[in-house]
Design a protein around this nucleic acid. Structure first.
Length: 760
RNA sequence: GCCCAGAUGGCGGAAUUGGUAGACGCGCUGGUUUCAGGUACCAGUGGUGGCAACACCGUGGGGGUUCGAGUCCCUUUCUGGGCACCA
C-alpha cells in the first residue's frame, strides 16, 4: 500500500520540492481490542508489539519516511489532544449527548457505527443488529452540511466519483415543512415534502412508530385501535432501521385517528408504518399514492384511495394509474392551484402555507449527526464527568489527559470529584470512535512533540493543506468526510490559515489481490515481506507493484511477475558494471552520442525521465508506463553491450540509470551510485532533466495510407516537407499498386507522421 | 431499480489533440552456452491464407460521423464499484 506514496514522495523530492512524508499508527479500536482479548494480552501490550513488528517491516520496504515525526494514536501524548479537541467541540456546541435509536450488537454488547452493520448484521459476529434507545455522544456534523456539500465543487483534485458519493451521502433536499392537525387532539404532526405540488393528492398521513404523537393517540382512539398500535409498535421496537426498510415489506396499521389537510381541510386517516424513518425529517410523511412510488405500493396493498392531482403537461390523461406518476406536470383537482405547472405550484403553495402561518420552505439532509461514543475499552476516554448535584461537566484542560486505566482498575477510574462543587462525580466510561483520532492526525505530524497545543499555527501555515493524499476508496464517506468537517472547524477557530479543505489532491489506490482474492491471514495467501526480501529483494517487489497495473486498478500478485523485475535489476547491474569506479562530472547528453544507435540510447534515457516527471506532475502516477520505458532503455543497453563498443553514450546511459530508478528501486540505485564512485547519496540528486535535443529524432517513419489503409512505411528525415513526402510516397511500389493508376484526388499530411492519399 | 467506472492477444497491460493497434513484461516455442537443470543471451509469438512479398480480418456486439475511430456520437450486452424506501 505504501509503495506508490513513497515513489511519489521520492520523485517530488528529486524534482526539488520540500516533502514532508510521515508515518504513524492508528492504533485504537475494536479489532485490536478483540485480538488482544483472544490472545489473553492487554491491548496496550498487544498493540505495542504489533507496532514494533510493523515498523520493522515498513522500514525493510525502504520507505523514505521522516521517523522523527512518528505518532501512535493510543499514546497519551496523542490522545490528550484528542480529548482537548473534543472539549473544544463541546464548548462550541458541536459535541452533545442525547437519547437516540442506535445500532446495538447483543453479542458484542456495544453500539456499532453504521459502517459496521452489514446487511443488518454485526460485521464481526454476524448477529442481527438491534435498535436500542441509549444516551450517546454525537458530533454535530450536520451544522456543516451545507459547507461540506458546496465546497465539493472546488475539490477539483479529487476523483469525481468520490465527490459524488459525498454529495449523495449528505443528500440535501429542498422542500416545504408544514403541519397536519390531528382531529380530537390539540397537537399537530409536522411533515416534510419535496413535492408540495401534490398536496391535494394526500390520502393518508403516515408516521414512524417512534413518533411522539403515537403515545397521545392512545387516549383518543378505541380500545381495539390502542391495542393494535401497541402491538405494532412493540413488533418494530428492536428492529433496526435497515431491517425495517430493506428487509421487510411495507406494512402498517390504521390508528383510528384522522388528520386534517391544512389547505383542503380534508380528513385523512393516520397510519403507522414501518417505511417511514423516525430519524429523517420529522418522522412523518403525507401519503400521496398517485405521485410517489412508495406511497403507491402502500396504498395498493392497504386499500387506500389513489387521487391523481398532477397530469402530464402534454398527452393523454384520465386513465387509471398503473404506477405512480412521479414527474412534474400540470395540476388538476387542486382548488385554485389547478392549471399551474408543478414548479409554479410549489412556489405558490409554499407562499400560501407561510401566509397562513402553517409552514414554509425547509431543507433536509440525509446526513445525520455522527455517533462517536463506544462502549469499548480500547479507545480515547471521553473527558466528561457527571456530578449528582451539578450534572454533566467537562474535564478541565489542565486535568488532561484523562488516562486510559488498566482494565482491572476500572472502578477507581470511574470515581472522581466534581470540579465545581467538589462533591462525588462519576467519569464517562465510553470511549471515542477511532475515526475521531484519524480526523486530524495529519496535523499532528507537523508538530508531533508539542505539549502546549495539538500543533502550532505557524507549522500549519507553512505546510497545510495536504498536497497529495493517497488512500483506499472505502473511506469516501467516512474518514474523508469527517476530516473535512474537523478541518473546517479548525479553520473557523483560526488554527489554520488558507484553504478550509484538508486534502488538495486525492488519489485512490487499487487493491492488491493474490489468486483473485484479497490477501488475508485467514485465506492463507499473504505474501510475507521478509520472505520476499529474501527471495527477490525489496526493489524488485517495489518495481513489480508499480509495474503490474496502473495504480488505481486492482492488481494481482504473481511470483512470475516479480521474477521479471528481478531480471530487469540484474540487467541494470550488468549494464552499469563496466563503469564502476570511474566517476566523471556530468556529461552533456548531446556530446556523448554520435552514431544513430548511440543517439537512440541517450534518447531512451531522456524518454524515461520525461515519462517519470510527466506521471508525477500530472498526478496520474502511471509509473507502469515509466518502468516500461526503463525496460526499453535497458534493452538498448543490453544490445549495446554485445554489438556496440563502450563509448561515451553507453557510459552516459549507465550513469543516468541510478538516478532514473532511484524513486522506484532506492536500494540498488544507491549501491550503483556508490560503486560509480560518488561520495554522496543518489537520493540527494536532482532527477534527470529531459533535454529537448536529446528527445528529438533525426529520422522518422513516414506512414503512407491509401484511402485510410496503411500501404507503406518509408524512412524519411525529420521535418520532411509535404511535397517531398508526396514524392516519396508516389515512388513506393506497394503504394502504386494500391493506387492502381487512379488519380490522387486529395491528400492529408500530418508532419513527421503520416500521409493519406485519397484516390477516386 | 438508480448512479459511476470499465471491456484491447494465452495473461497483466501500452497507445499526447482521432493519425503505424498490441509498446513493455509474464507465459509459450525454437536456438546458443551447459554433462544436465537453472541462469544468461539470440530469434519468434493477435487470427486466417501464403515459401515470401503481401493480402484480408481484428480493441465486447450492432449502427453512425470522418480521408482516417481503441479513441467521438447513438444503441446494446457483460463485468466491477457505490447507493438502495431519506418523503
Amino acid at each position: 500500500n505504501y509503495t506508490l506514496g513513497d515513489a511519489v514522495a521520492r520523485m517530488m523530492r528529486m524534482l526539488g520540492r520540500n516533502v514532508l512524508h510521515p508515518m504513524g499508527w492508528d492504533a485504537f479500536g475494536l479489532p485490536a481490542e478483540n485480538a488482544a482479548i483472544a490472545h489473553g494480552i492487554d491491548p496496550a501490550v498487544w498493540t505495542a508489539e504489533n507496532i514494533l513488528k510493523m515498523r520493522r517491516q515498513i522500514r525493510l520496504m525502504g520507505a523514505g519516511y521522516d521517523w522523527s515525526r512518528e505518532i501512535a494514536t493510543c499514546e497519551p501524548e496523542y490522545y490528550r489532544w484528542n480529548q482537548w479537541l473534543f472539549l473544544q467541540l463541546y464548548k462550541h456546541g458541536l459535541a452533545y449527548k442525547r437519547d437516540a435509536a442506535v445500532n446495538w450488537c447483543p453479542h458484542d454488547k456495544t453500539v456499532l457505527a453504521n459502517e459496521q452493520v452489514i446487511d443488518g448484521r454485526c460485521w464481526r459476529c454476524s448477529t442481527l443488529v438491534e435498535r436500542r434507545f441509549l444516551s450517546q455522544w454525537f458530533l454535530r456534523i450536520t451544522a456543516y452540511a451545507d459547507r461540506l456539500l458546496n465546497d465539493l465543487a472546488n475539490l477539483t483534485g479529487w476523483p469525481e466519483r468520490t465527490r459524488t458519493m459525498q454529495r449523495n451521502w449528505i443528500g440535501r433536499s429542498e422542500g416545504v415543512q408544514f403541519a397536519f392537525a390531528v382531529e380530537g387532539l390539540d397537537d399537530k404532526v409536522e411533515v416534510f415534502t419535496t413535492r408540495i405540488d401534490t398536496l391535494f393528492g394526500a390520502t393518508f398521513l403516515a408516521v414512524a412508530p417512534e413518533h411522539r404523537v403515537v403515545a397521545r393517540l392512545q387516549q383518543i382512539v378505541s380500545r381495539e385501535h390502542a391495542a393494535a398500535i401497541e402491538s405494532f409498535t412493540q413488533s418494530l421496537k428492536s428492529k433496526s432501521e435497515l431491517e425495517r426498510t430493506s428487509l421487510m415489506e411495507k406494512h402498517g396499521i390504521f390508528t383510528g385517528a384522522y388528520a386534517i389537510n391544512p389547505l383542503s381541510r380534508e380528513r385523512i386517516p393516520l397510519w403507522l408504518t414501518n417505511y417511514v424513518l423516525a430519524e429523517y425529517g420529522s418522522g412523518a410523511v403525507m401519503g400521496v399514492p398517485a405521485h410517489d412510488e412508495r406511497d403507491f405500493d402502500f396504498a395498493k396493498s392497504h386499500g387506500l384511495p389513489i387521487v391523481q392531482v398532477v397530469v402530464p403537461s402534454e398527452g393523454p390523461s384520465g386513465e387509471p394509474l398503473e404506477s405512480a406518476f412521479v414527474e412534474d406536470g400540470r395540476l388538476i383537482s387542486s382548488e385554485d392551484f389547478s392549471g399551474m405547472s408543478s414548479a409554479r405550484a410549489r412556489e405558490a403553495l409554499a407562499e400560501r402555507l407561510a401566509f397562513m402561518g402553517a409552514g414554509g420552505k425547509s431543507v433536509n439532509y440525509r446526513l445525520r449527526d455522527w455517533l462517536i461514543s463506544r462502549q469499548r475499552y480500547w479507545g480515547t476516554p471521553i473527558p466528561i464527568l457527571y456530578c449528582a448535584a451539578c450534572g454533566e461537566a467537562p474535564v478541565l484542560d489542565d486535568q488532561l489527559p484523562v488516562l486510559l486505566p488498566v482494565r482491572s482498575h476500572m472502578a477507581e477510574f470511574l470515581e472522581t470529584t466534581c470540579p465545581k462543587c467538589g462533591g462525588k462525580a462519576r467519569r464517562e466510561s465510553d470511549t471515542m470512535d477511532t475515526f475521531f483520532e484519524s480526523s486530524w492526525y495529519f496535523l499532528r505530524y507537523l508538530d508531533p512533540h508539542n505539549d502546549a497545543a495539538p500543533w502550532a499555527a505557524e507549522h500549519a501555515r507553512r505546510w497545510m493543506n495536504v498536497d497529495q493524499y493517497i488512500g483506499g476508496a472505502e473511506h469516501a464517506v467516512l474518514h474523508l468526510l469527517y476530516s473535512r468537517f474537523f478541518y473546517k472547524f479548525f479553520h473557523d477557530r483560526g488554527w489554520i490559515a488558507g484553504a478550509d479543505e484538508p486534502f488538495e489532491n486525492l488519489f485512490h489506490q487499487g487493491l492488491v489481490l493474490r489468486d483473485g482474492e484479497k490477501m488475508s491471514k485467514s485465506r492463507g495467501n499473504v505474501v510475507g515481506i521478509d520472505q520476499t526480501a529474501e527471495r527477490s529483494g525489496i526493489d524488485a517487489m517495489r518495481l513489480f507493484l508499480l509495474y503490474v497495473t496502473p495504480p488505481e486498478e486492482t492488481s494481482n500478485w504473481t511470483d512470475e511477475g516479480i521474477s521479471g523485475r528481478v531480471r530487469l535489476l540484474n540487467r541494470i547491474w550488468r549494464a552499469c558494471e563496466p563503469y564502476f569506479g570511474q566517476t566523471r562530472s556530468a556529461t552533456e547528453p548531446m556530446a556523448a552520442a554520435e552514431s544513430p544507435a548511440e543517439k537512440a540510447l541517450v534518447r531512451a534515457a531522456h524518454v524515461a525521465a520525461k515519462s517519470a516527471i510527466d506521471e508525477t506532475v500530472s498526478r496520474r502516477f502511471h509509473y507502469n508506463a515509466t518502468i516500461a520505458k526503463l525496460d526499453e532503455l535497458v534493452n538498448l543497453m543490453t544490445a549495446a553491450s554485445s554489438g556496440m563498443p563502450e563509448s561515451p553514450a553507453t557510459r552516459y546511459a549507465a550513469e543516468a540509470l541510478p538516478i532514473l530508478i532511484a524513486p522506484f528501486a532506492p536500494h540498488i540505485a544507491e549501491e550503483l551510485w556508490e560503486r560509480f564512485g560518488h561520495a554522496t547519496s543518489v537520493h540527494l540528486e536532482r532527477y534527470l532533466e529531459p533535454d529537448q535535443r536529446a528527445l528529438a529524432t533525426e529520422e522518422i517513419t513516414l506512414v503512407v495510407q491509401v484511402n485510410g489503409k496503411v500501404r507503406a512505411r518509408i524512412p524519411a528525415p525529420a521535418g520532411v516537407s509535404e511535397s517531398e513526402a508526396l514524392a516519396l510516397a508516389l515512388h513506393d511500389s506497394n503504394v502504386r499498386v494500391h493506387l492502381g493508376g487512379k488519380e490522387v484526388r486529395k491528400h492529408i499530411y500530418v508532419p513527421d507522421k503520416l500521409l493519406n492519399l485519397v484516390a477516386a
